[in-house]
Simulated scan of single mutants.
Amino acid sequence: MIYLGCHLTSSKGYENMAKEAVSINADTLQFFTRNPRGGRAKAIDPEDVKRYIRIAEEHNFGKVIAHAPYTLNPCSKEKKTREFAHMVMTDDLARMEYIPGNYYNFHPGSHVGQGTLAGIQMISDMLNDIIKPDQTTTVLLETMAGKGSEIGGSFEELKAIIDKVRLKDKIGVCMDTCHVHDAGYDIAEDLNGVLSRFDDIIGLQYLKALHINDSKNPVGAHKDRHDVIGAGHIGKEAFKKILTCPRLQGLPFVLETPQENLAGYGKEIKMLREMI
């Protein structure tokens, strides 16, 4: 089996997110830990968290994903930008312990001219500084489309980061279908080949979650523009293969498609369940 969900807003609280997920027949979800542009996080209400956990347990939720703000760049050439990423991620990982045993996903960042090797070192240095042995949260590196100077557009770059992280049981990968497609991995025509390459380079034991998004661009475009399932260049048939792939069973699959409202995500989840 797999777990299906979408990105929901946490501004109304954890309990509300759980109720919204249940209302569209989702059994996982993703949320921003704070405003996606950064800034101060809303105070956590422990009673709200307890109500969320009760609903999640009643409806057999799989692992859920918290997403770091897009503005974080742990390999920026600006020291204050790196320090901001360090501060936010440290705080977020402490907050994640209110819902223990889940995932925290982030974009590795852009080296902005410093070079890939320098960027990889900065990212791994930060992870080694903030990841603690007693945390229950697994930190996920997201696969990227490879645009500009961003790091994570190849499996080799993600492997290089993981190799430098000391607490390897606290690190994993979230594969974004749009991003890997745009990076040049042809998951539409050769899903098993892409997964085998991931396994050879990184190891499938590190693949913890998927963002399932179609792409507005052809394979290898390095653009990163999400589309609704079946409307883009990956295509509906490819997603049926992804959803039913034996190597991906048990993982949370989260939609980040350009839907206007919750009902739109509900329709997509219904369509995906029918594929299964």
Rank of each mutant, 00 (worst) to 15 (best):
S76K: 04
R273D: 12
K132Y: 08
I201E: 04
F198Y: 11
H211T: 13
G101E: 07
L243N: 03
E268G: 05
H7C: 11
L127Y: 01
F31N: 13
G230E: 08
A94P: 00
G220V: 06
A68Q: 06
Q249G: 04
S11L: 14
A43C: 09
Y70H: 07
D163H: 07
H111V: 01
K159Q: 13
K19S: 14
I212Y: 04
V88G: 03
F155Y: 15
K241N: 11
I151V: 11
L248Q: 00
K240R: 14
I202D: 01
A221T: 10
T71V: 12
G153Q: 05
I123H: 00
M126G: 08
Q259L: 08
G266H: 10
G203E: 05
C245Q: 10
P69C: 12
G152W: 00
Q114F: 06
Y265K: 05
A85L: 05
G113S: 08
E156C: 02
D129Q: 15
G153W: 00
R225S: 11
V139T: 10
H222C: 15
K236T: 13
G232H: 00
F155G: 06
A263P: 02
E260K: 09
K170N: 03
R40N: 14
R273N: 15
L93Q: 01
G115F: 08
N192M: 09
P74E: 12
G232P: 01
L4Y: 02
P74G: 11
L140V: 05
N102C: 10
K240E: 11
E97V: 10
D199I: 08
E57T: 14
I130E: 10
M271R: 09
Y70D: 09
K240C: 01
V228R: 15
G220S: 01
T136V: 06
K147L: 10
D227Q: 14
L262V: 09
G13L: 00
I276Y: 13
R37T: 07
D91T: 07
V112T: 15
D190F: 12
G148P: 13
L158V: 06
I242G: 01
